[in-house]
Design a protein around this nucleic acid. Structure first.
Lengths: 156, 156
DNA sequence: TACAGATCATCTGTCAGCCAGACAATCTGG
DNA sequence: CCAGATTGTCTGGCTGACAGATGATCTGTA
């Protein structure tokens, strides 16, 4: 690494491109065992973190179209990983919740995702991986779209 | 940032997702003024770095299909930013070179891309940006696909 | 109550983008 | 000279995403 011109070494776009390509390729080489691929994983992960979300809030948080969300949830529901139930407070909306099977599959998928991370970041030592994670965390925290989902007491 | 569970703070996938979404959205909000959007930029950037490349080598380096490369180069050529000429050593192949106009447009596009970077990384201070760049550089260097293009003496 | 407008999930239609396959021209090895 | 491989190009089919319409429901107003 040339210390004289540190800024010229790697353009952000190029770095992201390489990392993301490697990441996605590794993900569907590993096969998470979830419908919808990495988007199914993201949905399960989001629903686990903040329960009782309507489809449109998940869609907004994940940046996917609401019409796409419909059939993504369809697949997850058909696989028995999530449930749809009408929101008692707003019967237009459907509350999405993880089933026990969904929690299990998410756990194994998360393990495989950790393997993917190790593969993609094989060029970094452990301290550098933590560095990267911290930096990404700061960027994420600085972005507004990262709405922390409001929890709901599972009363119904 | 919870120091007790540093690994749980940010999954690589989620961090990449947020950063890439922000990056792409900002890129086409800024409009680089290049045909093909960010892929056009990548092509120009690659051709600048290693001249006299055939389309298939560019396609392989950038990870796009060769049939897609055809019309991407079409647009760049039609805009007068690159030239196609038959390789004297292998007349099947077309050597892609930057025109002077292409060099100019690449320069301005690179400036705008730097603006995009500053916007995406607004949550980081300067030292952290350098950190991130270094880490990405290491990951890129660790990946084989990053073939440094062989230069050719522009004799013809 | 009645009504208008907005919202959530869904369905349909349309449209762009991508890849497999075919093809002509060319190179390489026998 | 011929067979097979390679480069760039073209075509057809397929997938995926978004726009718009629709039904059910909520909110606000009178």
């Amino acid at each position: 690494m040339d210390a004289t011109t540190p800024t010229a070494t790697t353009e952000l776009g190029h770095g992201l491109d390489v990392v993301v390509k490697s990441f996605l390729a590794t993900v569907d080489a590993v096969d998470l065992g979830l419908p919808g691929g990495h988007r199914g994983y993201k949905i399960l992960r989001f629903v686990e973190g903040s329960t009782c979300q309507s489809q449109i809030r998940i869609a907004a948080a994940l940046g996917v179209d609401r019409t796409v969300m419909t059939y993504l949830i369809d697949e997850l529901e058909q696989a028995g990983l999530v449930t749809r139930r009408p929101d008692p407070q707003d019967r237009r909306a459907r509350l999405i919740d993880l089933t026990d099977a969904g929690r299990d599959r998410l756990a194994t998928a998360r393990e495989r995702m950790a393997q993917v991370e190790r593969h993609v970041l094989a060029g970094l030592d452990e301290g550098e991986v933590d560095q990267l994670r911290t930096l990404l965390g700061k960027i994420v925290a600085h972005h507004p779209d990262d709405g922390p989902g409001p929890l709901c007491s599972i009363s119904g």
